[in-house]
Amino acid sequence: MTRPEPPTSPPGRPDLAPASQKGGDRGGQGEERSLAPPPETGAEGMNGPRSFPGLPRRVPRPTGSLAAVARKYAAIVATAVRHRMAYIGDSLGRPVFFALILFVFCRLWQTVFADGRAPVVGFAARESLWYLVMTEAILLSAPRLQGRIDEEVKTGAVATLLNKPCHYVGYHLAFALGEALPVFLLNLAVGVVTARVLIGPLPVAPAAVLALFPAVTLAMTLSVLIGLCLALLAFWVEDAAPFFWVYQKMLFILGGLMIPLDFLPGWLQAVAGWLPFRTILCGPARLLVRFSVADAGSLFLWQAAWIAVFAVVTVALYHAGIRQVESHGG
């Protein structure tokens, strides 16, 4: 009762030989399926007739190596991609809504820039609309963690990952990123096609396309972390939804969803510069419309910094929340 037992070969438990060596010809179907009560023999019952012949035992125990951990989370991402693909038909409403928004803004920007008004810092109707394609594609693809986490917190299921060899925050981050990927590609395709039809193509530098991969991935990671952070507030408040609304609206204005931050008054641009929201929407979208290496480098640094901050906060919130479950029950 004081020292942990050695993790391998527990006492009193026979090793079962591999399937190839014995019992290989005994399929699961034809085996005895006794419904009788078990023999009342305690541990010796194990030596009775075996219907699990050849269930191979595992000898090595986890290494916890970096490679194994990477494979673990990569597997979650891959499973989440497949999971999202399985019901992607359910979310076809989003692209329609997306196209509608693009239509409205196409009319808005065309009206604004119609009477020969000069472009604002290089943004005219076309640039402004393509900018919106990128910001909306990111925003609409961010998975809605709130409902899921909220339910897990309410039912106490939030704790059940505790006894799995996988961190809750890491699991949900990988899960959400995996789910976001197919949705993002779908939305992007819809956005590109709609914008081309409405206002015509946008010349894009190849370097911009290259830079967009890390930029969008980091943006999505940050967005998921902030979302997790807010969703975990459900530990303390009955309904964390309002925080999401505010966050969403922050993204609208200070993230530069509908209007590039360059259009904002100077002081507001300065405020936005010091907040994380712009690195989620405006940052990547500006790379698409007006690429520069310096902008890209600066964006990646800011994204990485904010990801670090929110990763720490999210993990801390989670652990504090679990302690909360301890006292209030699940």
């Binding site: 309002p242 925080f243 609304w245 505010v246 969403q248 609206k249 922050m250 609208f252 204005i253």
Partner: peptide, 10 residues
């Protein structure tokens, strides 16, 4: 309260 704020931000 948050819905009012939400609209204000819009």
């Amino acid at each position: 309260v948050f819905m009012m704020l939400n609209n204000a931000i819009f």
